[in-house]
Design a protein around this nucleic acid. Structure first.
Lengths: 184, 184
DNA sequence: ACGCGGCTGCGGCATTTTGTCGCGTGCGAC
DNA sequence: GTCGCACGCGACAAAATGCCGCAGCCGCGT
């Protein structure tokens, strides 16, 4: 049984909080930290079994924490998250011992599934409907937009999309979400 | 040390031949095959220590060969190549035991380096460019596609996009990799 | 004050990319 | 054999996007 709470290491305070909440709500105690040092402190106190690790910790790579986590607890299960995904880092992360590597935006369920994946009992039900491409896009755009303090031009550049297109996208409310009729 | 030649598994005959040649020219005997079955045949005869595996083998995933290769020879070192890089498949490949995951186009030297260098280095900073929307989309699609075992129709349904559109997107091989403008 | 550079919103196209249909094929189940 | 399902692909209209340009606002250095 997990004694120590799930450790969430992510410098994005908002996202971090959301994650912690989501876990707690599911009956899984979680502890969020936003810096490698905080993380180390927690690790020393009580090595967690489950960890959600953001790769981009205020400039430094969360990758370096993986060995430390594993050193503290061999059966530690780590899921690496990142908003700046790259194949290279993904490969690194897995080789270092992470269980999964997911790109933000990601659904809580996906993280849970990844974390529990090792446990055959748990039904990994992929049934959870994946976000539609448009939804994913929307979330991503919002994230970057926020990172750019609402600056549309900057966001467009960061996303390598046309400012005009971004404007148009933003102008449209993502309201109509086809509930995928057919109920079945 | 290596008794069996390097095994090149890639359905792209041309590229395959190029690779084999490149290896041979460097004094490393290589054997090229273009189908999973051929590969299995070779493996049964003489399990190779070094393998270059293309992920996209005429529709089927080369991923399935990884366990077989490892079963045949535990110290088998596999480098996965792919023209359609995605984080999802990269993670899978590494988890299955591949040593490296490289995206085509790739230089022979990179493959060699990957085959010989077993020790990855933990590099620090991550390139912080957010993924372009198209890249994000690509990653997402790959993930779902994998979750659906390559079933295009099912994936399209899950993503709530038209099968035709998905086909078209998948058909477009180009690297969704953006030039990573500017840098920060 | 004035010019400069950056951001925003928006009006038009010309291009691309989609949504949709339909057709033919292969495969496994009944 | 027939049915259901998946695949690949051609065709074409509808929508989205890329790419102009223009005008208004702001903050800034001269």
């Amino acid at each position: 049984m997990t004694t120590a709470p799930i450790l969430i290491i992510d410098d994005d305070a908002t996202f971090n909080a959301v994650l912690v909440r989501a876990f707690v709500r599911r009956g899984m105690p979680a502890r969020g930290v936003t810096s490698p040092d905080e993380a180390r402190a927690v690790i020393r106190q009580a090595a967690p079994e489950l960890v959600v690790l953001d790769l981009n910790l205020a400039g430094t790579s969360g990758l370096t924490l993986i060995p430390e986590l594993l050193a503290a607890r061999q059966d530690c299960r780590i899921v690496v998250l990142t908003g700046y995904a790259s194949i290279a880092t993904a490969v690194e992360a897995i080789k270092l011992g992470a269980m999964q590597y997911l790109a933000k935006p990601v659904e809580i369920d996906a993280i849970l599934a990844a974390l529990e994946d090792a446990t055959p009992e748990i039904e990994g039900a992929i049934t959870a409907e994946p976000m539609s491409v448009s939804r994913l896009e929307w979330e991503h755009i919002q994230r970057i937009l926020q990172a750019n303090e609402g600056n549309i031009s900057a966001t467009a550049r960061a996303l390598q999309m046309h400012r005009r297109t971004l404007q148009r996208k933003l102008g449209k409310r993502p309201s109509p979400f086809a509930p995928l009729a057919g109920g079945s």
